[in-house]
């Protein structure tokens, strides 16, 4: 069966709708609770992982590199779950990395600013100004993340299959609409889309495995064939290739591996300056 990815700003009933759709369809709900699992599996600091998604900033914030690292692990974990089908995912940014997969129904929930501020006030017990300020800050952090990592504008409606305006349609009906929409034959999985998903899973897994040593590695997969492109200084290329090989081979599902090295001009230039 299909997968549903729900995207919404905070306080747009995203969690509620996702959980109810999951219950109605007998799908699994995959939300931020996965973050704990991811943190345990790769020994990552949970608050930073949350901050990397653009939610609840930590004191020191997250550097772009750290963010890419944390999200590489998160993507690997989320895609692994999505590949099992019958999942409703929300709050994990999944809609960004399953863009091209046809059996994922991408839904965007829209709620107007005042309603979100009210929800924030109730939840956090703060006054209107403080709630608005906090909400604005969070939206901005998430928009930054979306641009920095995925080069996308999260609230661009053309990214989604379905956009539901919750000012006009109540939650009950929104749940029905989403549950009904995903039944359409066009969202059925097929060899083509499953393969895309599998390739994506494998690529992110290899990338996560490589990240701590080779953060600049680009990974793509095509039916078990994995291509890693990694920058290296010319004289280190042999070493780098075998290092990447040793790491990437550990990932299950890698049938064949090709490592391509591109000249690291920056590093070479930096070395020649020394």
């Amino acid at each position: 069966m299909s997968v549903i990815a729900i995207s919404a700003w905070s306080h747009c009933h995203g969690e509620e709708i996702a959980r109810r759709v999951a219950r109605k369809l007998n799908f699994r709900s995959l939300g931020p609770e996965l973050l704990g699992e991811v943190a345990d599996r790769w020994q990552l600091p949970l608050p930073k992982l949350v901050a990397a998604l653009g939610k609840q900033q930590t004191l020191l914030g997250v550097t772009p590199r750290e963010r890419r690292r944390l999200l590489a692990y998160l993507e690997a974990a989320v895609l692994e779950k999505l590949a099992q089908d019958k999942v409703v995912t929300w709050g994990l940014g999944a809609h960004f990395y399953v863009m091209g997969v046809s059996h994922v129904l991408k839904v965007r929930l829209v709620l107007d600013w005042e309603a979100r501020v009210r929800a924030m006030m109730e939840e956090g017990g703060m006054n209107e100004a403080a709630a608005a300020k906090a909400l604005k800050k969070e939206d901005e952090a998430r928009a930054r993340m979306a641009h920095e990592i995925y080069r996308k504008q999260e609230d661009d409606p053309t990214l989604y299959d379905l956009t539901i305006n919750l000012m006009q349609i109540d939650i009950e009906q929104a749940v029905e609409i989403v549950a009904e929409a995903v039944q359409h034959k066009r969202f059925k999985p097929m060899t083509f889309s499953r393969k895309l998903m599998k390739d994506q899973v494998l690529a992110t897994q290899v990338k996560a495995e490589l990240f701590s040593r080779h953060p600049d590695a680009q990974v793509s997969a095509d039916g078990g064939q994995v291509l890693v492109t990694v920058p290296a200084v010319r004289r280190d290329q042999e070493k780098k290739i075998s290092a990447v090989r040793d790491l990437a081979r550990k990932v299950k599902g890698v049938a064949s591996l090709k490592v391509e090295v591109v000249n690291d001009f920056l590093e070479e230039a930096a070395e020649s300056m020394r």
């Binding site: 994506q200 992110t204 680009q218 591109v262």
Partner: peptide, 8 residues
């Protein structure tokens, strides 16, 4: 993962 290699 998209592979952004430039053609030579």
């Amino acid at each position: 993962m998209p592979d952004d290699k430039q053609p030579a």
